[in-house]
Design a protein around this nucleic acid. Structure first.
Lengths: 345, 345
DNA sequence: GTTAGCACTCACGCCCTTCGAGTGCTAACA
DNA sequence: TGTTAGCACTCGAAGGGCGTGAGTGCTAAC
């Protein structure tokens, strides 16, 4: 999307800001009179009208019908987010609330993630989503294989940062529980300090020489584990918040939104796609999922030990309080990063 | 709730059935004319009217206003479910659908549960919920402790039926990874074949004598594990289905419903409460949660090896297709029981 | 006991009007 | 030249009246 700032003088910008701000709050078309009163620019409604007419021509405003006020277009939101938004500061109360609800002494990553999602959704009153930290990029400390029944075992992967994940894998029937324990120890010993993604190419040969005839089996198991581990989980909270917004009063519209959220794959895609951008805002049709094209999605990454390890975000109507959402996300990203950095040693 | 069958003659029953059947389909008040035509009893609308008047007086029907048709009361649904419902048979297509979507060769209990919930919600178009099998009643095969970081370990519990569950627990800082492995082995050896619930009282003394000074620590860990294991997980699918029903067209009503579902604790309570009743139907105000009093909940238990190990069910509007829901649940309960019995050896 | 007939009720949909918020245009003003 | 007051115009939303029709309850006849 091209950057159209150059086209708008300061006054137009301020007027547009007033309109977007108002519309975000009220969800009702904004008229010249309102803008004249709300913005302290000392301009009469007539003057505002002229400017609004220009803004409409330039594609930043839309008119539901002749005798209604104006509504911001997607282009306006884009400009708003890029240039004119007052990047809101959290009030002390809000910062406090986050601190109080996140900083409790939880000791498990999954729990922290769930709390984060909850707080995020409570603070914004939109739908929140948090991608759990990805292990593929972390260094391993341990892989334990626990025999469960014939042909099945549970693999528990522990990283050097204390993040764990587990998965059921198939094991060759030929292996006895004792074999499995042996292999488990061997793998742990060899993989210690490596990343799972490197494991197969670099470490497998070393293992291979030691396990002899079972090499093929071990290889398959490792692949199985890697496959399971690369599945990304995402925690979603507050889907029903959408029903608080008049644009979703229509049941079928709400239905498609909620169904999409429940499916979850688009959210997951957005989060993983945004995993290397500090903050990412997708407005309306910038979403490539047709069912989400009157939503906006805002995401941030979070870190541990200075390295991006996950993403979180918020989904809501296009008329979203971008300022607040971005402020909350920024704050929570750093809070979560702190907590995880501490938690993961 | 007292059983009022005695009060109604066969004709009234048939008329009531016709009304409930019709109302379940259309969600619109049912008039005498409709009943006269639909039920093949050869009675004129006037006669039906007299009967309907009686049924209203007896509390089985309600009138939204004088000149509308009648709507079944909760009492009517109760009677309908207890006595007059044609317990629907699944069509071959439906049974097929279930078979095809459940019987794939999945090998993990969690996966089976998720599929079950999905199919249940797809078949009924209501919100489905499935309680994952409870381990507390199963015999243990293995408890593995995997050191994760200082003071923390992951406990993986495996039952003799192959069901697994894991939890983060605290471990005393004094224990080294080697100690943990030793204890892990010891616990497994001693607990093998016992139920977790018996573990602490009967097995702990035996362990205590062997671990000496660490007895307290081990005891705490076991308690921690038992606490974690008794937490019940429930899989919920299809919450947004509720928006397909006109009684939830009002956004705030939908909102309270969905919020309650998202919280999940009432569903969990209902499922666990019903864990020893083959089939349980709660209609409207029979639910003790005020936010759920215009919903109905139907649950069934499922078994493995002849023993109840879980519950599943459906939540929907009071005007629910009880016949179909109960038929689907019955069928799915036995399917799931078969699958699990096979899966769990 | 059943039914036809009939007067009565009342939500729903329709049309019409009113109301008011908002617009665009023009002319006057600084 | 930019700003503003004034004014005619537009059009959705809200409200009132009316006809329609589904449904009822009652009565009288079968």
């Amino acid at each position: 999307m091209s950057d159209n700032t150059g086209l708008l003088d300061i006054r137009k910008m301020r007027i547009l800001q007033a309109i977007v701000d108002d519309y975000i709050m009220t969800a009702a078309p904004v008229g010249s009179r309102t803008v004249s009163k709300r913005s302290d620019m000392g301009l009469s409604p007539a003057t505002i009208r002229n400017e609004m007419s220009d803004l409409t021509e330039l594609g930043f405003l839309e008119q539901p019908h002749t005798s209604a006020g104006r509504v911001p277009s997607e282009k306006a939101y884009r400009l708003y987010v890029n240039h004119i938004m007052d990047s809101a500061q959290l009030t002390d109360d809000e910062a406090d609330y986050i601190k109080r609800h996140l900083d409790t002494r939880v000791h498990e990553v999954g729990e922290v993630i769930r709390q984060t999602a909850k707080v995020l959704s409570d603070m914004t009153n939109y739908t929140s989503m948090v991608l759990v930290p990805q292990l593929s990029s972390m260094k391993l400390k341990r892989i334990s294989l626990i025999p469960v029944s014939d042909g099945k075992a549970m693999a528990v992967v522990v990283t050097n940062t204390g993040v764990t994940k587990n998965a059921m894998i198939n094991i060759p029937e030929s292996l006895s529980p004792d074999d499995i324990e042996k292999i488990s120890k061997l793998i742990t010993q060899k993989l210690d300090g490596h990343k799972l993604s490197e494991a197969i190419e670099t470490v497998l040969p070393m293992i291979r020489s030691e396990v002899g005839e079972q090499a093929g089996a071990v290889c398959e198991m490792l692949e199985d584990i890697e496959r399971s581990m690369s599945e990304t989980d995402v925690e979603v909270v507050g889907a029903s918040n959408i029903l608080d917004y008049p644009e979703y009063a229509d049941a079928t519209k709400a239905r498609t939104f909620l169904t999409e959220i429940e499916k979850g794959d688009y959210l997951q895609k957005v989060l993983t796609d945004a995993s290397d951008v500090e903050m990412c805002v997708k407005i309306g049709t910038e979403n490539d999922n047709p069912d989400m094209q009157d939503c906006s999605v805002v995401t941030v990454t979070y870190k541990a030990g200075g390295k991006n390890i996950g993403t979180m975000g918020v989904v809501g109507p296009t008329r979203m309080d971008y300022g607040k959402v971005m402020a909350v996300l920024k704050y929570m990203s750093s809070s979560l990063s702190d907590i995880l950095s501490r938690l993961l040693k």
